[in-house]
Amino acid sequence: MIEPSYPETPHDYADEGEELARLEAAMDVAPRGAAVVSLIAVGLLMVGWLGMYFLVFLPRGTVG
């Protein structure tokens, strides 16, 4: 079995200070990842909307 290269529980850290420092470092990066995922999701939604609008809706012609 391959041993994990990170401590399995917070108590495995040498001290509480190190644990907090790693947690802070992770929390610093997490919002950036969330922002990237959100931007990709919203971007795909907009590409879909604009695609339907310009490639399907507008070519179907005038109405009113």
Binding site: V42, M46, W49, L50, F54, L58, G61, T62, V63, G64
Partner: peptide, 23 residues
């Protein structure tokens, strides 16, 4: 920005291509 783009597209279609909901 997204709301502005969508509103702009709707206004563009209404003013230049006369695409409006029938009324």
């Amino acid at each position: 920005g997204i709301v502005a783009v969508i509103l702009g597209a709707i206004l563009f279609a209404a003013l230049t291509m006369h695409i409006n909901p029938p009324s």
